[in-house]
Each structure stands twice: as C-alpha cells, then as structure tokens.
Amino acid sequence: MASPRQRVDQQPGFILHSIPYRETSLIVEALTREHGRVALIAKGARRPHSTLRGLLMAFQPLWLDWSGGGELKTLIRAEWQGGQPLLTGRALLCGYYLNELLVKLLAREDAHPALFSGYAEVLRDLSQGQATEPLLRRFELRLLRELGYGLDLEHEAATGLPIRPEAAYVYDIERGFVPVNPTEGGAAGVSGRVLQNMAREAFTDPETQQQAKLLLRRLLNHYLGGQPLQSRRVFMELQEL
C-alpha cells in the first residue's frame, strides 16, 4: 500500500492532458511507465517564469518526480528527455485521439509498461511522418489487449478452429469471432483474411484498413460505455468545413 509520503523519482512519462487549477497551477494527467496514469498537481506551472511552463507539453518524453500518496500527487520536477520532433498537422490530431483513449480507458495507477512502450513508439513514428492509420490501428489493438479485452484473431469462437481467410465473421463481445451464415445475409462482417492481417499487425492494404477501423471503433465505443470521444468529433467537424 502506498505510504502517505511516497516519493517517485525520474519516472519516464508523457503528459496526456492538463487543466488549469487555481490561479497559477495545473493539474496534469500523465502516463508513466511504472505507475500508469497518474494525476499530478504542478504548482505555479502557469506563472510567466515558471521552469515548468513549456515543459509540461503533451507528446514529449519527460522524466517526472512527484510525491504524495493520495489520488492527486504533487509534481516536484519535470525534465525534458527530448530527441523527438514536436507533432504537427494530422499526426498531432492523432496524438490527441490516443491521449483521449488513454485518459478515458485506463484506470488510475494501473501500470502497463508494455502499453507505455507502445505509446512511446507510436508517438515517435507519428513524429517521423509515418502513415497514421496503420499506427492508430496497431495501438488500438495493443490497448485492448493491455486492458484485458484482447481479441483472439486466430480462432473461431465456440469451435476453436483456425480463422479461415475466405470466410466472413462477426464479432460477439461475449464470445469472439463467429462465422456469418451466408444464407442469413444482413451484416457483412469482417473477412477472415482481414483478421489474419490484424493478427500480424499488418494494416497496409485498404480492405484491412477499412474493416479493422470499423471493428475497432465498435469495440472501443463499447468499452467507453457511451462516452463520446471529443477528439473524434472535432476531427469529423473539420472534415465538414
């Protein structure tokens, strides 16, 4: 159990979101390697000459020191780790989407070191201008797996037989991938070939991109329990303008 005077030093982390607090402070949500998502109060971070100002930026690798045993801890120090260009353009919008998923789906102080590495990796790839869609899909799959909602992309539900590339499947949240009865019609489902590609994290072909996007969106919406994603709404509004 956490002692009230617990102190953490030099913890690798990223800022996910920050909100103003009182006159000059910030409350930041950070994703850290060994402590998961933590809420930190950054005292005086909004003062004009604060050393924290400009440092507590999302998408940049930091080292964080904090203390406190409650839910809201006190940030003591943040150090810029660097080595990564700032996100710009579309990659930046994608970054916001990832952060919103993490803020809404991760429980506080639940460590996911593998997810942390995956997040650091996807930010690095985004900052280097790689195609965004495959990166997002890979991260969504990893996120579901880390949360304990991993998909069995290789076996049919009930029978346990391997997924057949030529068959079509629908995903049942309780059971897994169930073959669509061709005579039933209705929902088109996901092709077995797409599932096999997803299992290999290969999201390059257009059919896989499109079907994986819809499938993962449906699953994420389910686990978000009806909470709308603001970043997705903003993105859609931008398309309309």
């Binding site: 979101h17 909100i19 919008l93 916001y96 989407y97 952060n99 919103e100 803020v103 603001q230 970043s231 709404r233 903003v234 993105f235 509004e237 931008l238 303008l241």
Partner: peptide
C-alpha cells in the same frame, strides 16, 4: 484555440 480533449472544436 482548438482543444480537442476539452471539446473545443471548429464550431
């Protein structure tokens, strides 16, 4: 300014 996580979009 736009702030996607705070729901401040183009509208």
């Amino acid at each position: 300014r736009l702030s996607p996580l705070d729901g401040i979009g183009p509208r």
